[in-house]
Every structure is written in structure tokens, then in C-alpha cells.
């Protein structure tokens, strides 16, 4: 059977797509705008006399603009499929939807001059084995570009390496469609959390019926965040809480009544025995029985398949 890697590697050495010719020749307005954006005050890019004094035949473009001239035009809604690369689309179709550029090299033949009309040709130069990275499992794909002008003169070349990966973040599934109950009243979906790099571990833990917290030098913290507030460290360990704690504070929600919850709803701030506090709903508890200091135990509520929320019940 032909694997994804076989299909992708069949592209190596071949043109990744049709050559692209710039819509406009190298020109002063685009150079000027680029210099302003970068804060580049080198006069050879905008001043004829300065360029000649530096040995150039006239105004030259900043070398870093080599791949600017052939960029795709703005299009509302993003690029068309034809503007992409089929070798990368293969990975998208196989679930490697993430993309991040990791390396760029450029080598310049000569400085581009006003009037050069740039054509870019692209080869697929390498597809790596599957690699495990911090972002997810994926493949590095290297593209090699060559730039020439209207006379076929070599202007420069570039390599561009991207990682196509399956993100480590679990997919945030779209909310289920609004359904109608038998009596005709609409049934709204339960609100969902925004899952990010920082808190994905927490939600994954809940799916496994575990209450997980970040710990840095023994300090636990919640809600999840990128940095330890004391040391400023971005490193952390993940520790599992016992689930035992006491009610530190609480409110009983009466209004507004959001669909998907039972009212009156006791919402508790629980101090866990590990010293970290967490907000969650009480379950199987009469509002009048909820009081500060009372012992509680964590439990888990499966709102929908693969969507689990923490909750507390009296210990």
C-alpha cells in the first residue's frame, strides 16, 4: 500500500507548482514601503547617487525582498487551492493540519535592480521521516526556490523548511447543532471551554477523570497559565490532585438561567488539600446544605462525549 510518506516523497526533485512571475517589476514604491516598515535607512535602496557611490549601477532592492516580488495577491478569504502546494496538501488531507516554518536560507546572485521582473520556480527538495516535536508529530518538508529575471539571469535561491504536524492540542469540536426538544423549545448546547496550548493538559486530564495542576518548584497553580508567577519560569510539572478539599467560598446561582444547568445552582470555590483553589459546580447537594469549611470530594461530569467538567460532592 502506498503510504503518505511514499506519496509525499514521490514529489522530491519535482516542481512543487508552476513557476510564478511577479505582477510588477522591481520598483521604488514597494522598496520604500519595505524600508519604512523595517526601519532600514540604507540609502542605496532609495537614492540613485548613494547607490552609485557604493558601486551599484543604480538603486537596488534590499536583498531580503528577494521573495517579496512573487508573493500571492491579497484575496478576501485567503489563498486559493492553486496557490498552495500539492505536496503540503497531502499532509493536510492526512490530518497533519498544522504548519510552521522552521528554517529559511537565501543566497543572492546579485542585488535586484529597478526593472528586474522576477520569476520564481519551486522544487520539493526533501520530505523527512516522521518526527516528534514540541508542537506535535509531523514531517519537515523543504522547498527550494530559484529566482531569475526576464532575461533568464540568476538572481538568487532560497530554501524554506516547514513542519507539517498533527497538533498536540485536542481538536476543539464544533458545538453541536441547536436541537429542539419534543415540546418544541430549543435545546442549546452547553458552553464549551477555549482549549489552548496552556490548558490542553487540564482538559485532557478531565477526560481521563483526573484533576491535574501545574507545579513549579513545588508551587501548584490554577487556572493553567504559561508562567510561574513567583519565579517567572516557563517550566512546569503536571501533578494529580487527590480531589479532597474544603469549601472556601460559594455562591448559589439563581439568575440568569443558562440552558444546560439545574437551578438554583451552588457554585463552590474549593481549597484542595494540595493548597490550590478551583471553582466548580456542586452536584447532588441542596443549596441550603452548602457551607464554608465543609469537606468535599471531586467528581467528574461528562457533559457530552469527550467533554468532561470537574464537580464536587459532599465528602
Amino acid at each position: 500500500m502506498e503510504t503518505l510518506l511514499d506519496k509525499a516523497r514521490a514529489w522530491v526533485g519535482k516542481a512543487a507548482n508552476a513557476p510564478t512571475t511577479a505582477r510588477d517589476p522591481v520598483n521604488l514604491p514597494m522598496i520604500r514601503r519595505w524600508c519604512e516598515a523595517m526601519g532600514d535607512t540604507n540609502p542605496i535602496y532609495t537614492d540613485e547617487a548613494a547607490a552609485k557611490a557604493a558601486g551599484h549601477p543604480g538603486i537596488v532592492a534590499p536583498p531580503a525582498m528577494l521573495d517579496v516580488w512573487t508573493m500571492a495577491p491579497y484575496r478576501p478569504g485567503g489563498r486559493t487551492a492553486e496557490q498552495g502546494f500539492e505536496v503540503l496538501n497531502l499532509f493536510d488531507e492526512a490530518g497533519y493540519g498544522g504548519v510552521v516554518a522552521t528554517n529559511v536560507t537565501q543566497e543572492y546572485g546579485r542585488y535586484l535592480r529597478l526593472g528586474d521582473l522576477v520569476t520564481m520556480s519551486t522544487l520539493v527538495s526533501d520530505v523527512s521521516d516522521e518526527k516528534k516535536t514540541g508542537l506535535g508529530t509531523g514531517h519537515f518538508v523543504t522547498l527550494a526556490y530559484e529566482f531569475t529575471n526576464q532575461d533568464g539571469e540568476f538572481l538568487g535561491r532560497e530554501t524554506f523548511r516547514v513542519l507539517k504536524f498533527k497538533p498536540n492540542i485536542p481538536d476543539t469540536k464544533p458545538q453541536s447543532d441547536t436541537k429542539e426538544k419534543s415540546d418544541g423549545t430549543p435545546e442549546f448546547p452547553h458552553p464549551r471551554p477555549a482549549i489552548t496550548h496552556d490548558n490542553a493538559f487540564y482538559w485532557e486530564g478531565l477526560n481521563q477523570r483526573k484533576l491535574l495542576f501545574q507545579s513549579c518548584e513545588g508551587r501548584l497553580r490554577h487556572p493553567p497559565g504559561p508562567m510561574d508567577p513567583v519565579s517567572g519560569s516557563l517550566d512546569f510539572e503536571i501533578v494529580e490532585a487527590s480531589g479532597r478539599g474544603t469549601i472556601h467560598s460559594f455562591v448559589v446561582m439563581h439568575q440568569p438561567r443558562l440552558p444546560g444547568f439545574e437551578y438554583p445552582l451552588p457554585v463552590v470555590l474549593v481549597e484542595l488539600e494540595e493548597g490550590v483553589r478551583i471553582v466548580a459546580n456542586m452536584i447532588d447537594a441542596k443549596p441550603e446544605d452548602v457551607e464554608i469549611g465543609r469537606a468535599v470530594m471531586a467528581d467528574f461530569v461528562e457533559v457530552e462525549p469527550d467533554y468532561v467538567l470537574p464537580a464536587f460532592r459532599f465528602a
Binding site: P63, V100, T102, N103, V104, T105, Q106, E107, Y108
Partner: peptide, 8 residues
């Protein structure tokens, strides 16, 4: 500027 090698 003859060449550049960038790691992101």
C-alpha cells in the same frame, strides 16, 4: 549581503 541562514 551575500547570504542569510535563518532558524525560527
Amino acid at each position: 549581503i551575500a547570504a542569510v541562514d535563518i532558524k525560527l
